[in-house]
């Protein structure tokens, strides 16, 4: 019994992906299908925050800005400059990674709330730049008719595979000495430095990896909607990402993936409540936070009472 549980625990992430992968087989209506796709796109941002916030302890409330950089880079290069969508898919995360590198520099000096304010400012600057650079971005009118990578169910499976790859990357970083260095920075920055962790280098690395994830998410956003508008990248969206990562248990990859799907779907599921929708949505989240960490897979399995595996080196 224990052995079966252990196998289930170690491979829970794959189980979650198989379930999501089987959804189209049951023939979801278009709109619900779209919500699951948006959930996967959000899951990428959540994984990005798992690395940045969960592992490294750097709270960013400007991730919508990074997603916007990825989305707009893809849209502008494909639409205005006639790039192949595939080349833009590769280039957009690279550009977002470079922007993330710049965002990392203040984190060398700033801590806690000061860093948070800095990331909020970053998010707002990106949004306002997009709003005003009308020639490139279409400003408040947005960009229409962006060519997608695939259409329909192919895009769905392509996204699923990409999210799975990024989830595996997150898991591997978690179990590596780099993940350990990230956590050392989160728990005690000074001690980490004195033990031999190059704190600046690893903060930079964490921001860059996180931004690359967010950039890919942006490309998917552009693919899904086919239309970009600065209103999709507000501070409110950034805080929703934060909500998702906290609900997922901060450091849990599987938890983050599932919570991204659930938090994205919840307001839509509650649509039948009409005017009371957001009230009930808030209430559900409150109740959830009260019984915190229900989605943290590690915690659930440890409650099932078998020995915690600390096989960090495989």
């Amino acid at each position: 019994m224990n052995k079966a549980l252990k196998i289930l625990k170690d491979n829970f992430i794959y189980l979650a992906f198989i379930v999501v992968g089987l959804l189209p087989v049951f023939g979801l209506p278009n709109y619900q299908f779209y919500i699951v796709e948006r959930g996967m796109q959000n899951a990428l941002v959540v994984l990005s925050l798992v690395i940045l916030l969960g592992f490294t302890g750097q709270l960013s409330l400007g991730h919508a800005g990074l997603v916007a950089v990825g989305a707009y880079f893809y849209a502008i290069t494909v639409k205005n400059y006639g790039f192949s969508p595939w080349i833009s898919l590769i280039l957009a995360p690279v550009v977002t990674g470079l922007v993330g590198m710049l965002l990392a520099i203040p984190s060398f000096k700033l801590r806690g709330p000061f860093l948070v304010v800095n990331t909020i400012a970053f998010g707002e600057i990106v949004r306002i730049l997009i709003l005003n650079a009308v020639d490139f971005t279409g400003g408040p009118f947005g960009l229409k008719g962006i060519k997608p990578l695939f259409s329909g169910v192919y895009l769905y499976y392509f996204m699923l595979v990409v999210v799975l790859i990024f989830a595996i990357v997150t898991l591997r970083i978690n179990k590596s000495h780099i993940g350990l260095a990230f956590k050392a920075i989160r728990d005690d920055e000074v001690a980490a430095e004195i033990i031999g962790v190059d704190v600046k280098k690893y903060k930079l690395l964490s921001f860059v990896i996180s931004s690359i994830f967010a950039g890919v998410s942006g490309v998917f956003f552009a693919n899904l909607t086919g239309y970009l508008n600065p209103d999709s990248f507000t501070f409110e969206i950034s805080s929703t990402y934060l909500l998702m990562v906290v609900m997922g248990g901060m450091t849990s990859t599987t938890g983050g993936f599932l919570s991204a799907l659930l938090v994205t779907a919840l307001p839509e599921v509650l649509r039948f409540l009409a005017d009371y929708r957001m009230v009930i949505y808030g209430l559900i989240l409150l109740i959830y936070i009260r019984f915190y960490k229900v989605l943290d897979i590690k915690k659930i399995f440890s409650k099932l009472n078998f020995k915690k595996s600390s096989e960090v080196v495989e």
């Binding site: 970083i173 590596s176 000495h177 780099i178 350990l180 260095a181 956590k183 050392a184 728990d187 005690d188 000074v190 001690a191 004195i194 033990i195 031999g196 962790v197 690395l205 990896i209 600390s310 960090v312 080196v313």
Partner: peptide
């Protein structure tokens, strides 16, 4: 004492090896 409290004994010792690691991301 400045150990990494969220990790195990094994992991904390592993962290000491960090400077000798030749692996990159």
């Amino acid at each position: 004492i400045r150990l990494i409290n969220s990790q195990t004994v094994f992991d904390n010792v592993w962290l000491g090896h960090h400077v000798n690691s030749k692996l990159n991301i």
